[in-house]
Design a protein around this nucleic acid. Sequence first.
DNA 1: TTGGTTTGTGCAATCGGTTGCACTATTTTA
DNA 2: TAAAATAGTGCAACCGATTGCACAAACCAA
Lengths: 373, 373
Amino acid sequence: MFISYSNYRIQEKIQSLSFYIKQEVISLARKNQVTLSDVAKKAGVSPSTVSRVISDSSRISKATKERVQKCMDELGYYPNAIARSLAKNKTGNIGVIMPSRDEDIFLNPFFPETLRGIVKGAATFGYDILLSTNTEVGDELQSIKNFVRASKVDGLVLMSSRINDDNISYLLSIDFPFSLIGTPYIEDSRINYVDNDNFMAAYELTKYMISKGRSKIAMIAADPSLLVTKKRIEGYKRAIKDCNLTCDEDYIFIGSFDEETGFKFGRELIGLVPRPDAVIITDDLVAFGAIQVLEGLKFKIPEDIAIASFNNSIISRYSQIPFTSVDVNAHDLGLESINILVEALEKGMQNRRIIIPYEIHKRQSTEGMFSTE
Amino acid sequence: MFISYSNYRIQEKIQSLSFYIKQEVISLARKNQVTLSDVAKKAGVSPSTVSRVISDSSRISKATKERVQKCMDELGYYPNAIARSLAKNKTGNIGVIMPSRDEDIFLNPFFPETLRGIVKGAATFGYDILLSTNTEVGDELQSIKNFVRASKVDGLVLMSSRINDDNISYLLSIDFPFSLIGTPYIEDSRINYVDNDNFMAAYELTKYMISKGRSKIAMIAADPSLLVTKKRIEGYKRAIKDCNLTCDEDYIFIGSFDEETGFKFGRELIGLVPRPDAVIITDDLVAFGAIQVLEGLKFKIPEDIAIASFNNSIISRYSQIPFTSVDVNAHDLGLESINILVEALEKGMQNRRIIIPYEIHKRQSTEGMFSTE
DNA sequence: TTGGTTTGTGCAATCGGTTGCACTATTTTA
DNA sequence: TAAAATAGTGCAACCGATTGCACAAACCAA
């Protein structure tokens, strides 16, 4: 009698059989997971007792604890985090949602720096970091939902905030714990965030320019739907106004966080009438691009035009013309974002807002034409 | 009758009660997890059927599939990843083990770049990235064990390899799937890795120096227990030998991946007799430090001494004197490390070794005193 | 001695899925 | 037309923990 191999049931069976064989082979080496029950059996107690020993329950006698502990050591037992997560409805993971521009993200040292702080913070509290891996650009919400709805994380860190931020709205609507790096677009006591005072930073930077004798100050910013950009533009405008200078909208350029933006607007900048004698730029890389262009066009920095920017990355220090830049302390932003999140998770703390101090590193690019100081 | 509050049982009860109240409150908003059984109930089928609909089993009729699907949509069902992990013994997570130097890691753009590739690769295959968060410096093995023994990940990516690497030995000993960025210290068909040909890169770079008329070539390297360093030193030595030049051990300096190393050895370098007319450095940041020192000491680059290094980071392009640097293509290293790991996980592939091409970006710092080309 | 505590442990349900196997109804084959 | 194969679904065990409650033994006060 022929066996009909078209019989998919058999195929299934074979498949599952070979699966088992493979698993078996693998399991000989790996998958030698010692379980709680194994320990219990060896120690002659019930699994619940072992579980209580692990959590150091006060209801287990010292003698039993020691005996069980010994068995655990001997068997090399290590609790299965997945099973524990399921039972306790807690994962021990914190999800980090990175802006999904792919190219940009790690180019700008702000994110790696922040991530370093995050990792460090998580380590001290015993959490692991789950990184969002969006395939689609701009689809952070999808990553968030994947993490949240699949219960893969206990809480989230959002690394940026925008106006009418969908991510924030969603998380608030389902009341899921998160902390934000940046200032939220709405006041809501449930939002824990950490940020610099970007308004003041830009304000102070602009004032500093003015104190150095500059009066026609331009700005190159990024997408103003990003709160950080918005705040900086506001601070800049306010300083101009407070000093009774005029702030033409022509003087504000909107680009992105790359060198190209610096090239492009550096060129346009010097075409303005009257020509600016200073420019504030929201990122070092952009500033660097602008400097290159301006130098190429034979403008002198800082004599003809002063330049200052944000992030205080390595290139601001080591560019041909070292330029003034605001250190936002990205590492601490990351670290504190974890602190407040963990406090929210473990102690139910709310309404935490932490302002991380910035620091203006003054360099050659903003030296005065004539100093008023 | 008084209630004895010292009765810890009662205290426990109260605690658990308040816990429940809190949980209850929370669960009103969050924790509205729709489960498989809910869907099953609504669709009037058994949970197993729903599960099979999710996995699109061929054994469920089209009609049932559609009906169940509709119920899932209506209820907003989303499978719980934890429960699934437990049942399938697969997490969908890949652990990334970063060298645990804390400060160094993100300072050097190599790691962020690599991580970017890793994240991108993981996204295409639908895996999430779990980052190692070692508290103790140099204690990657602990992180690895935490991930592996707790079953938090399906596989691992190691971002560096050393001689007699404990991490590799451990993973091999328990036969746990991983891929390596770098070349392993031992031949083992079970190790899948991706690397540059660091020997050839250094060899070629050295030859290039020689072709430019240099004959006394020094090297500043990092810890030679790191395979990457070892290979580069070997390539360098070989090139020297092949050209019948002498390679004094004095010409080789061992430091770390920071500017300080550049400062220190830049200074020592020019004290050597005979004085080197070229130096190969294993990292841009170090090279940058060296350049600063040398310039400070009034040495001309490239006239007095040529400089070349590795990683082609932004500072190699934009330093006052742009310097020659080898682009190791960190992004692709990361991306491929995921590719081979996933192939190992899902298809049992072994013995994969991928060499990512490097590219020497030639810049001003290696222009010849006199060109032989 | 008796009834009430206090202590220490185990039972069994639960977390939310997956899957081998059994079972029925329908179709195909001879 | 009877036997065999196929299709569609459900039962129940299982993944590896946690935890409310029950229960037995030891202890204590009156």
